[in-house]
Amino acid sequence: MLTVQDLHAGYGASEVLHGVDLEVGQGQLVALIGANGAGKTTTLRAVSGLVRPSRGKVLLEGREVQGLEASRVARLGLAHAPEGRRIFPTLSVEDNLLLGAYGRLPILLGYKGRAVASLQRVYDLFPRLGERRRQDGGTLSGGEQQMLAIGRALMADPKIMLLDEPSMGLAPVIIQEVFATIRRLKASGITLLLVEQFAKSALEVADHAYVMERGRVVAQGSPEELKKQERVIEAYLG
């Protein structure tokens, strides 16, 4: 589904990624773990087109997408729920969700009618979003905003979803809820690439994981394999 080959990227003159390779298969949940500043978020940003890679390839269903504008990549079926959630605070919950489906809805009028089924699916998954559909996105709690960010990504009916630090800044109870949601998404067959600081929780849900350090992948394997590797244990699972 998604293949990343020898990806180099950075901001200005400083290179952050020094050749990242990874692969996400259809229906898989792949986790990307590593310390702060390892390049996990930059990897996702380079994949979705927010950062232009200086070298390397990103293949979405075999098609090269590196260097395309992020909006083009999104329309090809990649939904990226970014770090910090980045919902639109001045728009209502429902408008946030509708914009998630922007690429496949009529842009002038009649868009609501066409989105009823997708909206209902998201509201079934996150009933609280349904209750607050008319509220501004900015009035939601952190956990609800994360639900909104995931729901918004789901609205696109994506082939693959990138989820960046969904647990960031949330209370432990809410984090459990987020991971329960990720499990449900996985069960529904969605292909997911998950970036997480909480390596333990990430490895519990993942099919396969990559460990990043200083802009490179330093270890990979199934969660069982990784849990046996000493340096992974030391560094991230303690």
Binding site: S48, G49, L50, E69, A70, S71, R72, A74, R75, A79, H80, P82, R86, I87, F88, P89, T90, L91, D95, L98, L99, G100, Y102, G103, L105, P106, I107, L108, L109, Y111, R152, A156
Partner: peptide
Amino acid sequence: RRTLLGKALEAVSTDRDAAELMGISAR
């Protein structure tokens, strides 16, 4: 206020990157 395109314009003005991720071309 009424069209999805109009809401997309507002989305671009509040958060350009996030709007791009929705498939909205900032350009």
